[in-house]
Structures are given as structure tokens and as C-alpha cells.
């Protein structure tokens, strides 16, 4: 088997005395949608932050295409090809939707400050390209009609989708979505599922943290389940649905009730 896109290699994460992640080990393959689920406080967001290089693991390491993320500066992680959205929306509130996406697109632009100041042709070309890409992405996410509005004035659903558009603008190899359906009604969730599939079909690999079981079961190829910082199961949605440890974790039944 070829090298996985992202390898979470026996990662342990401690905050003082609290063990948030305990020897978690899994990998994400090119082109799949991997779901990461678990009850509240299971360590999903912590794992997400370790995987995207925000936290450094206490033990173990995260390798992206074989490269150790702990040794990479944060803004460079984006350039390597990892992009993310946030559980609580973190857009640039006073910038327009288009500008928000363009900040993401800027990540892989190469012209210097001087060429920006003097409007050299290469910078202009990149700006044009960035704008075009931003408009395409807004279109793709179905929010192009509000492109010129400040992010803070957009409806909630638009803001969520704008975050995904901004992340996609960085041209990621791996797109990490942190509870993208939070606060969505069922209809919006179904729409989102379609979008996530469409994103994968464009060649992106997706890591999806989600609370909502129907969404996770409906859209992912594989699922990793965390409970109290440990990986308790890994498999296809069908396998996970039948997994006793998972059912126990979610329903609070004793795991050895078999």
C-alpha cells in the first residue's frame, strides 16, 4: 500500500495532568472521506488540532506525506496542503466573502511585497486568478449571491459554507472540517452531505469531525471512533454501526455486556 496522506502515529496529548489523547493511531488515505466521531469530550477537537499542527503532540507524531508536522511552522502547514474550518466560525468578520476566500487563495501566491506595491504584471495576474478562483468557489458552495457582503452580515449557513470555501481556496490536499453541520437543520445537513461528496469528487481528501450520526454515516468511507481520548473503533460506517464498544460509548451501556 502506498504511503497514507496523513498518518497519526501513536499520538498522546497531555494538558498538565489531563490525558486528552492516549496513543491514538490511524491514517487517512488519499481520496477518502474519513469521519472522526466520539461523545462530547472524547478528544475529537484536540486530535483535530494535533492533526492540523495547532498543537504539538506530547508523544508520537503526525506525518503529512511523510513529513513530521511538529517541525513545520503553522503558516507553512497550509502551504503543505492542510486546510481547516472551525467548529465556532472564525471568518474575518469585516472583510467581504470574496476577500475572505482570497486570503485563503493568497496562501499559494508567490509574488513579493514590492511587486504588490508597484502592481507588477505577475502580481496582477495572481490577483486576477485569485479573484476568479474565489468566485468559482463561492459559486460551488452556493453562496456567490452574497460575495460582496461583509462576512459578519451573512446568514449562519452562508458563514459555515464560506469557511469551507476559504479552506478550499488554499488548494488543500487534505480538507479538515470541524463539525460543519453544527446548527444546521435536516435539510441543510442533506445539502451539506452533497457538498462534501462533491468536494471529494473534485479530488480532495476530507477529514470530517461530526456530532451528527446520520451525516457521518451517510457521507464517510471510513470512521474512527474516539472515547475518553482513546481510539475504540475504526471501520466502515456499517461496521461502526454494529460495533458494541461504539454503541456502549454512545448509549452509556457497559462495554462488556455481551
Amino acid at each position: 500500500m502506498e504511503q497514507p496522506l496523513l498518518k497519526v502515529d501513536h499520538v498522546t496529548m497531555q494538558f498538565g495532568g489531563l490525558v486528552a489523547l492516549d496513543d491514538v493511531d490511524f491514517s487517512i488515505e488519499q481520496g477518502e472521506i474519513l469521519g472522526l466521531i466520539g461523545p462530547n469530550g472524547a478528544g475529537k477537537t484536540t486530535l483535530f488540532n494535533v492533526a492540523t499542527g495547532v498543537y504539538q503532540a506530547t508523544a508520537g507524531q503526525v506525518r503529512f506525506e511523510g513529513r513530521n508536522l511538529a517541525k513545520t511552522e503553522r503558516h507553512k502547514i497550509t502551504k503543505l496542503g492542510i486546510a481547516r474550518t472551525f467548529q465556532s466560525i472564525r471568518l474575518f468578520p469585516d472583510m467581504t466573502a470574496i476577500e475572505n476566500v482570497m486570503v485563503g487563495a493568497d496562501a499559494h501566491h508567490t509574488t513579493s511585497v514590492l511587486s504588490a506595491m508597484f502592481h507588477l504584471p505577475k502580481h496582477k495576474a495572481e490577483e486576477k486568478q485569485g479573484l476568479k478562483r474565489a468566485l468559482e468557489l463561492l459559486e460551488f458552495m452556493g453562496i456567490a449571491d452574497r460575495g460582496d457582503d461583509a462576512a459578519r452580515n451573512l446568514p449562519y449557513g452562508y458563514q459555515r459554507r464560506l469557511e469551507i470555501a476559504r479552506a478550499l481556496a488554499t488548494n488543500p490536499k487534505l480538507l479538515c472540517l470541524d463539525e460543519p453541520a453544527a446548527g444546521f437543520n435536516p435539510a441543510e445537513k442533506i445539502e451539506l452531505m452533497g457538498l462534501i461528496r462533491a468536494i471529494r469528487d473534485q479530488g480532495y481528501t476530507v477529514l470530517l469531525i461530526e456530532h451528527d450520526m446520520s451525516l457521518v454515516m451517510g457521507v464517510t468511507d471510513r470512521i474512527v471512533v474516539l472515547d475518553f481520548g482513546k481510539k475504540i473503533a475504526e471501520g466502515t460506517p456499517a461496521e461502526i454501526r454494529a460495533d458494541r464498544a461504539v454503541i456502549a460509548a454512545y448509549l452509556g451501556e457497559p462495554a462488556d455486556a455481551s
Binding site: R90, A107, E127
Partner: peptide, 23 residues
């Protein structure tokens, strides 16, 4: 300008800007 956009992004949320690849 692009750099100006970066300045505004950092002014509004430096942490997020960093995660979006802004140096």
C-alpha cells in the same frame, strides 16, 4: 492589495490568518 488583505486579516484574527497560510 494582497498584502493589505493580509494586514486586515491579521488585524481581525491573527490566529486564523496564520492557519489560512498567512505569514
Amino acid at each position: 492589495s494582497r498584502v493589505g488583505r493580509g494586514i486586515r486579516a491579521v488585524a481581525q484574527d491573527a490566529e486564523t490568518a496564520k492557519l489560512m497560510g498567512v505569514n
